[in-house]
Write a protein that binds this DNA or RNA. Structure first.
Lengths: 119, 119
DNA sequence: ATCGCACCTGGAGCCGACTCCAGGTCAACC
DNA sequence: GGTTGACCTGGAGTCGGCTCCAGGTGCGAT
């Protein structure tokens, strides 16, 4: 099972090293294992979890809620129903965001056409 | 020509009074006219501009860029080409946001289906 | 006339999410 | 054996965008 150096994880996930350390510090990431020199060596699983974090973060989930999700994951399989609920609620908000953006986009297009007409 | 009290503008635009004052302070809003007692009386035009602000803000435009746009508007008609450019660039970012959200949404759906299958 | 209320000001404070820094360790290459 | 470079730590600082506060004014209703 392969491990990843900090630099590799930065490359792979797009998070900065500082952000990774920050996520570990606040408990969004489990304590990352270390080599003899005390340097982080991320597992495949860490990287996968960071992929999830990236997705949730990029869809606007606040860190506090990601922490709740992380907590559910840690508690084991009996929390899966709760995880589904959390993700479905989040999905609803993502849907709303998309609808809202699409709506606002029309206004922007109208504004642009208006400007085009007066130019 | 009708004017609006702060409370009416709050109602109409969804911004808080503090936010309206803040926007005026930083120059995103022109100095708002006052009645004899020094209280704000917003014009139709102010409210219209706030509608534009709302749209740009809700689509993720940073205040610094809204200030640039406000500045172009103040400079008069010869900046219309620049305004179109600014709005088109912003439109591109909105498009990207929607695409990104839609993409991430698939991941969330997949995650939910996965959880549904293991429950 | 006095109460409540909507409003005013300048300035401080807050929150989320990082981001940066100083000073240190270790491994490897020249 | 000296230098480079990737990494480490704890803690402070930054940034965007508000949000709150204390203390004050003026107006309409009881």
């Amino acid at each position: 099972m392969s491990v990843y150096t900090p630099a590799e994880v930065v490359e792979e996930t797009g998070f900065t090293l500082d952000t990774l350390r920050y996520y570990e510090k606040i408990g969004l990431l489990e304590p990352v294992s270390r080599n003899a020199a005390g340097q982080r060596r991320f597992t495949e699983e860490d990287v996968g979890w960071l992929g999830t974090i990236r997705c949730l973060r990029d869809t606007g989930m606040p860190i506090a809620e990601m922490l709740r999700f992380a907590d559910l994951v840690r508690q084991g399989d009996h929390t899966i129903a709760d995880r589904i609920k959390l993700l479905e609620e989040h999905d609803g908000r993502v849907r709303d965001q998309i609808a809202n953006l699409t709506e606002r986009q029309r206004y922007i297009h109208d504004k642009i056409s208006y400007y085009r007409r007066v130019v």
